[in-house]
Write a protein that binds this DNA or RNA. Structure first.
Length: 309
DNA sequence: AAGACGAAAGTGGTTGA
DNA sequence: TCAACAACTTTCGTCTT
């Protein structure tokens, strides 16, 4: 581990003890905050057409967290001829193939890397089923790698930890997904994912605040096929100061669902409480209760709702 | 008949002693 | 560890459109 720059200051605790860890991240040694990755500032000689590589060009995909070795690996091509173009003798060919096999084996050095190969496959599968963008997958993979290095996967299922990392990454990227949604696509249940999520966040000292209800609005609206005006109004309702007091201790999905329901009613669009409850994963009773609370907080008549002043 | 409403009982998670 | 508690769910009967 090398000290990168003693002028680098942690944005969380203001400590100056920021170093590069074993997976290339800038990590504050005092509070554990990950401040970013180290960047190679050297020139980038990429091959754009028919390059032989003789001039020192680089090629291949950019570094990715989604492969256990970052995608930065070398491969020995199958070869039938030597450097001069002459055919290899059978014994030379056997020797080459043996070397090639050994080389491939070195790509997975130990149990940690084997774990990562399985986990990153699962991560990609789960994120794919949930149609999550690449940035979320990369962040989830980064968190997972930290969890492996801190030995948090021991005694837990790989699937559970992967699901927890995806949940964390979604929350960090303001695309919150509920534990139920993730649980639907994972072999691990909601309970287990939630427990693992808490443990991993605590051990890695990652602080994630509760998702604001407005983060759920776009998805609920798209499930319910509501227009942008209705979605915008639901968000603006949730953005009002009066609503802040309602969210303490309450599930954000229930509040978001009620705001969407209210917004649809104001705009004269008929969506039953049942439909909204299915889209949001909460019951009609919860929507009714939050609906009444929002209406009274904003002084809206619940029977004939009008846009708030 | 479908949807909304509200009461009551049950469930699972959190908190504080 | 356990009891108390708040939030939420489930169920069911009644009311409204």
């Amino acid at each position: 581990m090398t000290q990168i720059d003693n002028m680098e200051k942690c944005s969380e605790c203001s400590g100056r003890n920021v170093r590069e860890n074993e997976i290339g991240e800038l990590e504050c040694q005092d509070c554990g905050l990950i401040m970013g990755m180290t960047i190679d500032m050297g020139k980038d000689n990429r091959v754009f057409a028919d390059g032989s590589g003789a001039e020192g060009e680089r090629w291949g995909q950019p570094k990715t967290e989604l492969l256990h070795d970052g995608g930065l690996t070398t491969d020995m091509a199958p070869a039938l001829r030597d450097g001069t173009g002459a055919a290899l003798s059978p014994s030379q060919r056997r020797k080459y193939n043996r070397l090639r096999r050994q080389h491939q084996r070195t790509r997975i050095r130990d149990a940690k890397e084997r774990n990562l190969v399985t986990a990153l496959n699962e991560l990609d599968r789960l994120a794919g089923q949930m149609s999550l963008p690449r940035s979320i997958r990369e962040d989830a993979a980064r968190i997972y790698k930290q969890a492996v290095y801190k030995k948090l996967v021991r005694g837990r299922s790989i699937e559970g930890v992967v699901a927890a990392c995806i949940h964390a990454s979604c929350r960090m990227n303001h695309m919150a997904r509920t534990l139920d949604e993730i649980g639907m696509h994972s072999r691990t249940g909601r309970k287990e994912i939630g427990r693992t999520f808490k443990k991993v966040m605590k051990e890695l000292q990652i602080r994630i605040y509760p998702a604001p209800p407005s983060e759920y609005v776009p998805r609920f609206c798209s499930h319910l096929q509501l227009d942008a005006v209705t979605e915008g109004m639901a968000k603006s309702i949730l953005g009002r100061n009066e609503i802040n007091g309602l969210s303490a201790g309450r599930g954000p999905t229930g509040i978001a669902a009620a705001a969407v329901y209210l917004s649809a009613r104001i705009n004269g669009i008929v969506r039953t409480q049942r439909e909204v409850s299915l889209a949001a994963g909460v019951t009609e009773v919860t929507i009714r209760n939050r609906y009444k609370e929002i209406c009274s907080a904003l002084a809206i008549n619940p029977d004939t709702p009008q846009p708030p002043q």
